[in-house]
Every structure is written in C-alpha cells, then in structure tokens.
Amino acid sequence: MELRLSGVGHSYAGREVLRGVDLEVPEGQIVCIVGPSGCGKSTLLRMMGGLEVPAEGEVLQVGHSPEGCLNPLTFIFQDFALLPWRSVAGNVSLVLEDHPIARAERREMVADVLARTRLTEFVDALPRQLSGGMKQRVAIARALVVRPAVMLMDEPLSALDSQTRELLMDDLVNLWVRQPFTAVYVTHNLAEAVRLGHRIVVLSRRPGEVREVIQLDKPLAERGYGDAELEAQQKHLWDLMRAEAAAADAELVGG
C-alpha cells in the first residue's frame, strides 16, 4: 500500500504549521522526514495515521493492504506507549484482542513476533523492568504483530542512548531486509535518516513545506556505521537544514 499526500496544510489556533505538502510513500520503502523542531513533522505523521484531519489537502491510501493485515496504518511512538500494567506479551497481545482470533492462534502470533524481535526471554517482564531499548523493541513487536501496511514512526529512537540506537537501527534494517515494509520515519537525527531512508524529505521551518527530497539508492543492507558515502549525504542534509534549524531555534516558543 502507498500513501499519497497532496497539498496538505494545517494551522493551530491561527498559526500555520504545515503548508502545501505533497508527498509520496512508495510501497516497500522507508521515507524519512527531517526538519527543524516544531516544523510540523509529528502533525504530518498523525495525519497520515488518521489521528488528525488536515485543514487543507488530503491524505490518500492507495492500493490494498497485505494479506492478513489487521491495522494498515500503525504507529511506533517516541515514548513507547506501553501499558505499564501489562507484561511484554500482554502489551503485544493487546492489539490483537479486538480481532476475532482464536486464543491459541493469538498466542502463537505473539510468540512468533517476540522471537523475531528477540524478546522471547522477556515475555513475562513488566515495562518498568526493561531498558529503554528493550521497551522500544516491544513497541516494534506490537506494531509488527498486526502486519501493518505502513509503519508510522515518530522519532522512535530519540529517547535512547546512542549505542542502543545503533543496535536498534541494525534491528530495523534486518527486519526490513528479511521482509521489506513500508514506513514513514520522522527523525531529528540525520545519521538515522541516511541509514534507514530510501528517500529523505527535508521540511523547512514552520510553516513546514517540502524543501527537498533526496533519493538514496544504496541498499539498506550495505549501509553501515561510518559509511563515507552516507557521511557525504548527511553533510549535504545538514547544510540544507543548518540555516533553518538556527532560525527555528531562535524563534520564541509559542510565538
């Protein structure tokens, strides 16, 4: 399934946040969205997932969801959003419980996805017992279990330390290589963007407009930590963003 945004614009209380955003998320690819703080990245993502309605323009889903898909547009949140009163397995099975799936099959699906995200040992652990990286892996498992058509990730790694981030990026790459998924990945971190993105969309500062779209053709599996080609791309991105970020930073919050 693809996502297509045309002319999306939005304002909060008279303050324009997004303006004329055209965007395409092709099937089987990861589209990264970068941009200065407050430029409306999260807002854009919420619109793609149906948690908010754009004031202008429209968000279209094109094509069919994959076989057995339970929740086509699935979020992974920055702060994990795990239920603290449910175990790892309970948090994953939560999103299956509203679907007519037999108990045994549900348990199998949960076990399978936890194995894929290497969480099998922690099935019965509560979120408070897990490290940040582990929590985000649970959230990723929860997203995978519903077989999403498009994954919507809002700075999924930014609450984690840089080592854990590297590990989780490898995890995401491995998951994608084994079974390509479609994703929109919002981030502040340009290194993450050049590592995971097939396509990188640079937004301007508020009101967010598409400034540039960069296509990265190097296969995900071949991108590694400290890759010279990626560094060059990252530098190019930073040059694009530098002035915007500085200007955005100097603005009064809420001004």
């Binding site: 929740n71 949140f77 702060d79 939560l94």
Partner: peptide, 10 residues
C-alpha cells in the same frame, strides 16, 4: 499517549 496508542491500533 496511551489512549492515542489504543486508538491508533483501532
């Protein structure tokens, strides 16, 4: 955010 999460999973 937990309620949002619930809604986002339908």
């Amino acid at each position: 955010t937990l309620i949002r999460m619930g809604q986002s999973f339908g």
